[in-house]
């Protein structure tokens, strides 16, 4: 017996896959139905729905990049410490000393790429009119995913704690200072005055809530780290699950009637 066959007829292999190799029609159907990862897909699909010229595989590439970011991100978390003392030095060491410091490059460029592919995916969905009934709500979920992708990128931008990082976040979060009514430089913030006491100050406004401080500092680093590594990825993972589920429930990839 060839070695491959020994493996495939072993009890271990069979306990994992429970069916022969997907070489004939029957087993190609069975594999789709019994494999946890593959059962996300239908068993058969219209040829047009998998044409690269139609979907550009862009949603798939975006999801793959999300997975790459998850894996490289977890590995980076083993190394990086989000404190004023260590953040910058850890990143510096990733560049200069640590073997596999390339993880940082993979993570950063993967993040940029994910922003771009999300836009391209949305562009494709628009151009094929795939947001029209019955897929309206999946488009809405998509918009939230787009927002989460941008926020993931934005919160991650701060973590290297270099000049590029804190000033980009400073410029970005300064906007919150001007939130109408809730930002202390925003229009109408004077309205929230109770008994002559101004409720909205630089220590209580929308920007303070975002940064955890009056300026981008240690509290911000901690806040963004937790958002970046836990809160937003969890939210995104949940919405991705719903997004994919809806693609199936809305009748699969869109196509002409």
């Amino acid at each position: 017996m060839a070695i491959g066959e020994i493996i495939r007829t072993s009890q271990i292999w069979k306990s994992i896959f429970r069916h022969p190799m997907p070489l004939d029609r029957r087993n190609r159907i069975v594999v789709m139905l019994t494999n946890f990862f593959l059962h996300l897909h239908p068993v058969s699909i219209k040829k047009q729905g998998i044409a690269l010229s139609f979907t550009w595989c862009m949603g798939g590439v975006t999801f793959f990049l999300f997975l790459v970011e998850t894996v490289t991100g977890v590995l980076l978390m083993f190394y990086y410490r989000p404190t004023l003392e260590w953040a910058y030095n850890d990143i510096l060491a990733l560049r200069d000393v640590t073997s596999l410091g390339i993880l940082r490059e993979l993570h950063r460029w993967g993040a940029h790429a994910m922003v771009i592919t999300t836009w391209l995916h949305m562009y494709r969905v628009f151009l094929t009119g795939s947001y029209k009934p019955p897929r309206e709500f999946n488009w809405v979920i998509g918009v939230i995913l787009l927002l989460l992708t941008l926020l993931l990128s934005f919160t991650g931008y701060l973590l290297p704690w270099d000049q590029l990082a804190i000033w980009a976040i400073t410029v970005g979060s300064n906007m919150a200072r001007a939130t109408p009514i809730l930002g202390y430089e925003g229009p109408g913030q004077q309205l929230l005055t109770i008994g002559g006491i101004d409720m909205i100050t630089d220590g209580s406004d929308a920007r303070f809530g975002l940064l955890g401080a009056r300026f981008v500092g240690e509290e911000t680093l901690n806040r963004f780290y937790v958002l970046h590594c836990i809160a937003i990825p969890l939210a995104a993972a949940l919405l991705l699950a719903i997004h994919f589920w809806r693609v199936r429930k809305d009748g699969g990839i869109s196509g002409p009637l």
């Binding site: 997907p22 029609r25 190609r28 159907i29 594999v31 789709m32 593959l38 897909h41 239908p42 068993v43 058969s44 699909i45 219209k46 040829k47 047009q48 998998i50 044409a51 690269l52 139609f54 595989c57 798939g60 590439v61 793959f64 990049l65 196509g255 002409p256």
Partner: peptide, 27 residues
Amino acid sequence: PMEKLADEKVLVWPDLVYTELICMVAV
């Protein structure tokens, strides 16, 4: 439209699964 011409159904394994695999490797 052209998309209508590719109307027949194909099995996801191998057609889609392999495309995805190649995309993953390329990316």
